[in-house]
Write a protein that binds this DNA or RNA. Structure first.
Lengths: 190, 190, 190, 190
DNA sequence: TATGAATGAGTGTTCATTCAT
DNA sequence: CATGAATGAACACTCATTCAT
């Protein structure tokens, strides 16, 4: 092979896209993404056929990364609350450690350039969280609501909490803790 | 002297902007907004100096309307939970009744074309909710968290709930009720 | 109305397109066409929705003009050969007088950006020639061939002749005459 | 020393170019030509310095092939009309048998990427036809016209006829015959 | 004041050609 | 020699804003 597609370059493009999309939204110019990756405008299109393809793959990559972060060191044998707490804390830590990734993910979640199908695939990465959710629901959590609703509630509260952490990093621990309390209150049975 | 600009036209532009922004996001072309208002492209700019001005004023208008809807028939003399329940229900009813307005508001909330200052001004419309919040916090709700955080938690849960109502209007009452339960659980002290 | 679409500007664009397409083919950049018309790049698109629309309308305009030129002063009462001679001479005169138009027409005829439908509509302008053709065929011309074939033969010979006239304008009369002789020989029955 | 470049690869590129240019015109991407030849994009440029070089050589190759086809089995001793008929029939047969080659040749003839000089060289392959032409002219054919004109008339009529054959292959023989009648009428003295 | 034509910078994408592997 | 990734100048088209009417 002549020159293999460089994993480095691909990553550089994704990294640049993360920054630029975080700052400018899904409308960010591909030219800016390319230059942020120190790559020619045309090169971007040898790694991603279209801007939409790039955006969708970025979304998927971020989702995967977040899912992996959330499940790292997952205490399978502990009780429900402990496991939720673990997941929540990992989410917070990841979001606080990677503000651009989190912001980019949010922009992409809101953008209509990420296809429905991509969102479905992205959801698969969270099968472990899904399992935890199903178990919790079976145990009486969030009486009478569909699992998707509980998941959305978690995501909304996590997102809100991370927004405050991003604004006041010094209060990270307090928000992290208060956020979990809110989540647990929202979701656990009375 | 009466205002020479037609209030009707201004409202038509805002109404059209609501629809178009709901559907296309903040990137919606001014030309489309103008044509939706049955007004010439240039006319839009005699009512709003720039597209950003239009977007910011639309944001403000929607916020005002929502705040008014939330406080209509506010039972000042009832207990905290009843008052919150009222506010929540009015929020849900307004959002369910005006899906385009809600969606436009969401798009604008996420867009960087709405200035920080606009968001602050928009917050003022909610002073009554703020008062309720302060009272609740003083009573021990959401231990140790700033009022803004509690407000954001409410908004996030309300938004999430409305999203589900929009998708499954038939389950409106169930989501409305379950959403409030989640909110109250998230926010009330243990 | 604010400022009506200027017929002058439209014509300037078509005229510029004629020159540029004649020189560069249907691949000519719209930017060059616009600048040749002393008009901003974007203005071209207020007069023609797409480049294809411009090209198709240009084709139609040229066809109409040629058809009109061919039928000017048509001697309806003369014999077949005289009428064909008239039509041939007017074709030659028009082509010799407007080399860019002729060349542009040729480029467009060959280009796949001119739609089949456009070609059909363009053909309608030649209904008088068509009638002459039908009459001639009925009189025994081009035994056993479809009208379209006879028309194509004429066009091919006319095009060839004009090519030579364009290269050697001084011999215009000789080519014009020899071209007609060839056409008449090709087409008249033995 | 044998040529280090593979004749096979060169031919594959030319064959692919024939197909692709026939379908897409001279603007066809070199990448598509290369992939049609099962050859890397860059390889194309070791066989042909530039796209123009490829196009010009393709033109020459097609012209040579056509000229050879036209003269195969040429009945040198027969009369003028028989010899013209032979040449005409071979042209038709070749064109009908190789529609892509014919179409590519047409696209190239019309394109400005084929240099004037290339066209001249291409003409040389037709020296036998040229000789036939000169002989015919000396015998009084096409009174007072230059040989090039007669040649062009033949080409134009042949091209037209082939176009109709391509559209209605079933009527091949009729067009072939009618086309020759037209040609002969156009060209023979009255 | 209302209109909509005019503007030109900006957009995503293509492509002939180069050159590292 | 063969490969195909890299390049950046084009390209067709969009759009917020201006301004002649």
């Amino acid at each position: 092979m002549a020159r293999p597609l460089s994993e480095d370059k691909r990553n550089a493009i994704l990294a640049s896209a993360t920054e630029v999309v975080a700052a400018l939204g899904a409308g960010a110019p591909t030219a800016k993404i390319a230059s942020g990756a120190a790559v020619a405008e045309g090169t971007l299109f040898t790694y991603f056929a279209t801007k939409d393809a790039l955006l969708n793959q970025l979304y998927l990559g971020l989702k995967d990364e977040l899912a992996a972060a959330m499940m790292a060191g997952y205490p399978s044998r502990r009780g429900l609350q402990d496991r939720w707490h673990h997941v929540w804390d990992r989410y917070m830590d990841w979001g606080a450690a990677h503000p651009a990734k989190r912001k980019a993910m949010r922009q992409l979640t809101v953008s209509d350039r990420v296809a429905e199908r991509t969102r479905q695939i992205g959801g698969r990465a969270f099968h472990d969280v899904q399992a935890l959710l199903d178990e919790s629901l079976a145990a009486g959590m969030m009486k009478d609501q569909p699992p998707a609703f509980a998941a959305a509630v978690m995501e909304a509260l996590a997102e809100t909490t991370l927004e405050f952490i991003a604004r006041e990093p010094k209060r990270k621990e307090r928000y992290k803790c208060g956020g979990f309390a809110a989540f647990w209150g929202a979701v656990s049975k009375p």
